[in-house]
C-alpha cells in the first residue's frame, strides 16, 4: 500500500476537501453557478433606448446592399436625424451628414458594390474576423461567441442574408434588438430584465463591435468621401457614445492585420514558418526520432519488422 490517501479516481483535487460541495462536480454544475445577479439598475431610460435601437437598426440598413429591400431611403434618414438628436450632439451632427450625402439608389448601389461587393472584390471587409489578430484558426472562436450572443436572445442569422455571423449589419441589428428589449423592459418595470439586456450590450460591445468599429470606419473613409463615409462616421460616433456612457474599455484590434501562424514569443523566429510536415525544416536530421535522420530508431523498427518476415 502507498502511504498516500490519494486515488487518481475522484473529483477535482481542489474541491476534494470542500465537503459542502457534495461530491464531484460536472460541467453542468459549473454552468448552473455562473449567474451573477447585479441588482443596480443600469443608467438610461426607455425613450433613449428606443432612439438608440432605431439608430442601430437604420445604420444596419445603411450598410446593406442598396436595392428594393436594403439601403436607406429619404424617410429613413429623417428618422435617423431625429433619433440622433435625442442622444448626443456629435451623433446628431454625424446623422445630419448622412442625410446630406444621401444619393439616389442607383448611385449608392454602385458605390456599395465598389466598397463591399464581390463585384469588384472586397475593398472594405464588413466582417469582424478580418480585423482580429491571429490566424483564422484561432479567431473562429469569436464567431462562435457572436452566434452564442444571438442564440442567447432567441435570434439567428436570416436565410435571405446568408452572411457570416460577424458581419457588421448583423452586429448592428443585434444591438438594435437589445436596445428595443431594454426600452420595453424599462416600460414594464422589469429591473432584472433591464440589467440582463444592458449587461449583454455592454459585453457584446466590449468583446466585439467596440473592438473593431474604428478600423472598419477608417477603412471606409480611406476609400470613400460620400454617403458611406458619412454612415461610417455615424457608426463611430454612436459606438463611441456607447463606450463612454457604459464606461467600457474594449481591447482595440491592431492598426494593421497581423496574421500569425505560430507564436514567435514561444517558438522563436522558427515559429514564423509552417513546416508542419518538416519538408522545409533545417536541422531536422539532428532531432532524435526524425525520419530524416539515418540513425532514426523508428525507421529501424519498421524496417526490422519487414526484414523479419
Amino acid at each position: 500500500m502507498s502511504d498516500s490517501d490519494f486515488s487518481i479516481l475522484g473529483g477535482p483535487p481542489s474541491e476534494r476537501n470542500d465537503e459542502s460541495s457534495g461530491g464531484n462536480r460536472t460541467a453542468r454544475d459549473d454552468r448552473d453557478t455562473d449567474a451573477d445577479p447585479t441588482p443596480e439598475l443600469p443608467p438610461g431610460d426607455a425613450a433613449t433606448a428606443l432612439h438608440r435601437a432605431r439608430l442601430y437598426s437604420l445604420l444596419a440598413l445603411g450598410l446593406e446592399r442598396p436595392d428594393g429591400n436594403g439601403g436607406l431611403e429619404m424617410d429613413d434618414t429623417t428618422a435617423l436625424v431625429n433619433a440622433a438628436a435625442a442622444l448626443d450632439r456629435t451623433v446628431e451632427d454625424a446623422a445630419t451628414a448622412v442625410d446630406d450625402h444621401l444619393t439616389d439608389t442607383a448611385e449608392r448601389k454602385k458605390r456599395w458594390a465598389s466598397l463591399f461587393g464581390v463585384e469588384e472584390g472586397h475593398t472594405v471587409s464588413p466582417y469582424e474576423l478580418t480585423y482580429l489578430p491571429g490566424p483564422l484558426l484561432t479567431t473562429v472562436r469569436q464567431l462562435a461567441d457572436i452566434r452564442g450572443f444571438y442564440h442567447a436572445f432567441g435570434i439567428d442569422v436570416g436565410e435571405k442574408m446568408p452572411y457570416r455571423g460577424d458581419h457588421v449589419c448583423y452586429q448592428l441589428e443585434f444591438l438594435a434588438h437589445l436596445c428595443l428589449r431594454d426600452a420595453r423592459l424599462r416600460r414594464a418595470g422589469d429591473d432584472e430584465g433591464v440589467t440582463i439586456v444592458v449587461d449583454a450590450r455592454r459585453t457584446f460591445l466590449e468583446a466585439h463591435l467596440g473592438r473593431w468599429f474604428w478600423r472598419f470606419a477608417g477603412e471606409i473613409s480611406a476609400h470613400d468621401d460620400g454617403f458611406f463615409a458619412a454612415v461610417a462616421d455615424l457608426l463611430a460616433a454612436l459606438v463611441e457614445d456607447e463606450i463612454a456612457i457604459l464606461d467600457l474599455d474594449p481591447e482595440w484590434v491592431p492598426d494593421t492585420s497581423e496574421v500569425t501562424e505560430w507564436n514567435e514569443g514561444i517558438f522563436g523566429a522558427a515559429g514564423r514558418s509552417c513546416g508542419g510536415c518538416g519538408a522545409d525544416a533545417t536541422g531536422l536530421e539532428d532531432l532524435e526520432g526524425s525520419p530524416g535522420n539515418p540513425r532514426n530508431p523508428g525507421s529501424q523498427t519498421a524496417q526490422d519488422g519487414l526484414d523479419d518476415r
Binding site: 484561432t138 479567431t139 472562436r141 532524435e288 526520432g289 526524425s290 523508428g298
Partner: peptide, 30 residues
Amino acid sequence: HEEGQEHMFWNNVETKPYGAHPIGWDKRTL
C-alpha cells in the same frame, strides 16, 4: 485555439510508420 496552445493538437492524425507528433514519441519511449 488560444495563445499558448499553438503547439497543441489534442487530436492528431499521423502517418505510420514514420509520422509522429511529437517527433518520435513512441519510438523514443519504446
